[in-house]
Every structure is written in structure tokens, then in C-alpha cells.
Design a protein around this nucleic acid. Structure first.
Length: 271
DNA sequence: AAGTGGACCTGCTAGC
DNA sequence: TGCTAGCAGGTCCACT
């Protein structure tokens, strides 16, 4: 579910409310992607700092290290003063003096793991493979062009891989390629510089607009207030197989690339 | 080294 | 109505 906009919307919805809180208790539930990596009791008494985002990860700094969180495919974080007892899909509670941060994640592809620091194992290994942030001024068409050079995977898969630019998931990859009028099947390394310029701009634009819309709620995304996003209503191609392209009227197609659906318009995105 | 496919896990929906 | 196959926002890892 959560791509960069959803993760950032989530961060913005609880970061200021949890900052400065003292941890009273950490309660792990069913196993997530990885074990927590520390004794939950050791987190008690520590003060929470300013929550950061890197790619689709959130970093909750504590006095001794911090918690790296990922929402996987179906995760969401809630923050409230007095949450109900955990349900069957609530797998982590961080109880603090200012409220309870709760990870809800039916598929359990998400993660909460302790790391002694952002620059220490295991956070360092996980974050180290990530590409540039799309809103970093250094993310330009020139950089994109350079980083895609020689890559024979499709541009769609290269965007999803996250080692070039982070935060673009399955929805926004299709949307950005449509906005940039680029065929998702093209080999990444075959994109000329001018198309990389257009794609970099499209990635930023789509993500910014999704962020402004509160993200996309296809089925269950919620921010920490419990609010859903509205960007799915602006989607031009994602989830619109068989419908008419809003721009050119051609039928939106669905193909499978790397075992994931890709949506595109052959009219707007010619080979 | 880069590309591919499988793995993780649960829930919902379309179709028979 | 009930079952099943297929699909879902991510990404790591083993293998070629």
C-alpha cells in the first residue's frame, strides 16, 4: 500500500505528537518481516525524538538507537491517546506518555526493528541500498539518465527497484510514466536524456500531488489520524484497465512486468 | 553484475 | 450459496 506519499503523510500525522514523549512500554505482537532485534523492555524510559523518513522507511529516534519501521504492503500506523485493545492485525504498540503508536498490518510484510543508529547495522544495510530522494534537488534528469545507463530492465521495473530513486511504488510508477508519456516497457538504459528530464519531473510532480491529496487509499491506507487519501481519484491509468484514457481516449491497458501489474495508455505512451 | 523468480502473509473479489 | 483462483500499495534473497 504505502509508497512515499503515504509514508510521508503518515509521518506528518504523528511525528509532532510523539516527539518528546517517553516510552512506557513496547509490545510486539505476531512476527513481522524481521524480529525486533532488542529486548522490548529495554525501550522503556527512553525519549522519542523527531521521526524521519528515508524512502518508504520511518526512523523513530530514541536515546539508545531507534526504531526503523516499514509499512510493507498493508501496514498503517495509528496514534491515539487511548486505543482499543489490539485486534488480530495489530502487531506492535509503542506506548508512550503522549499516546500509543500502533502498527496495523494484515499481511505482516511490514517491519519494526531496533537499530543502534541510522548509520549502524541493521539500518545501515537496509537504507544503504536506497537511491536518491525524489524531492532532493540533486534528483535531476541528468542524474536519472546517468543512473539508468546500461540497465536493460524495463523503465517501470527500474523505477520500482528503488536503487535509483526511492519512494516510487506500483501506483506512482505507472502514473509517472503516463505523465511523462513514456512506454513502461522501454529498456531503462535506452531512455534519452530529454526523456529522463521529463520522467524526473513527472516523478516529482506525481508524488507531490499524491502527497497533497493525502496519498492513495485503494483499500485500507489510513494516516495516524485514521484519515484516508484521495489521490486514487486522480489516477490516470492505475487500476483503470479497459477504461478510456482521460487524455487521449484510448483504452488503458494492463500488462505484467516482474510479476506486478503495469497500467499504461498506448496512445499517450507510444513505443 | 544484472536480471529473474520465489518467498513472506492475509484478505477480498470475480467467476464458476 | 460456496468454493477457488487470482490479485493486492513491498522488497529481500537465492539463483542464473
Amino acid at each position: 500500500m504505502p509508497e512515499l506519499p503515504e509514508v510521508e503523510v503518515t509521518r506528518l500525522s504523528f511525528a509532532s505528537r510523539i516527539a518528546g514523549a517517553r516510552v512506557l512500554e513496547a509490545r510486539p505482537g505476531k512476527p513481522l518481516r524481521w524480529p525486533l532485534g532488542c529486548d522490548p523492555a529495554s525501550l522503556a524510559g527512553q525519549t522519542v525524538g523527531d521521526t524521519l523518513r528515508r524512502g518508504k522507511y520511518l526512523w523513530l529516534p530514541l536515546e539508545q538507537g531507534g526504531l526503523l519501521m516499514h509499512l510493507g504492503m498493508s501496514g498503517s500506523l495509528g496514534f491515539s491517546a487511548a486505543p482499543p485493545p489490539p485486534g488480530p492485525h495489530d502487531h506492535f504498540d509503542l506506548v508512550t506518555t503522549q499516546g500509543v503508536l500502533r502498527l496495523h498490518d494484515p499481511r505482516r510484510f511490514g517491519a519494526v526493528l531496533w537499530s543502534p543508529g541510522l548509520d549502524a547495522t541493521p539500518a545501515r544495510e537496509l537504507l544503504g541500498r536506497l537511491g536518491i530522494e525524489p524531492f532532493d534537488a540533486a534528483f535531476t534528469g541528468v542524474l536519472l539518465h546517468e543512473r539508468l545507463r546500461g540497465r536493460r530492465v524495463s523503465i517501470k521495473q527500474a523505477l520500482l527497484a528503488g536503487d535509483v530513486v526511492v519512494g516510487v511504488g506500483n501506483i506512482y510508477a505507472s502514473e509517472a510514466l503516463h505523465a511523462a508519456a513514456i512506454d513502461p516497457r522501454l529498456a531503462a538504459g535506452a531512455l534519452e536524456r530529454w526523456r529522463c528530464e521529463r520522467l524526473a519531473a513527472a516523478v516529482r510532480d506525481i508524488l507531490a500531488r499524491a502527497l497533497a491529496a493525502g496519498g492513495s487509499t485503494l483499500r485500507d491506507f489510513r494516516d495516524a489520524h485514521g484519515h484516508g487519501g484521495a489521490f486514487q481519484q486522480q489516477a490516470q491509468v492505475y487500476g483503470r484497465e479497459g477504461e478510456a484514457c482521460h487524455r487521449c481516449g484510448a483504452v488503458v491497458l494492463r500488462i505484467v512486468q516482474g510479476q506486478r501489474s503495469t497500467y499504461y495508455c498506448a496512445g499517450c505512451q507510444p513505443p
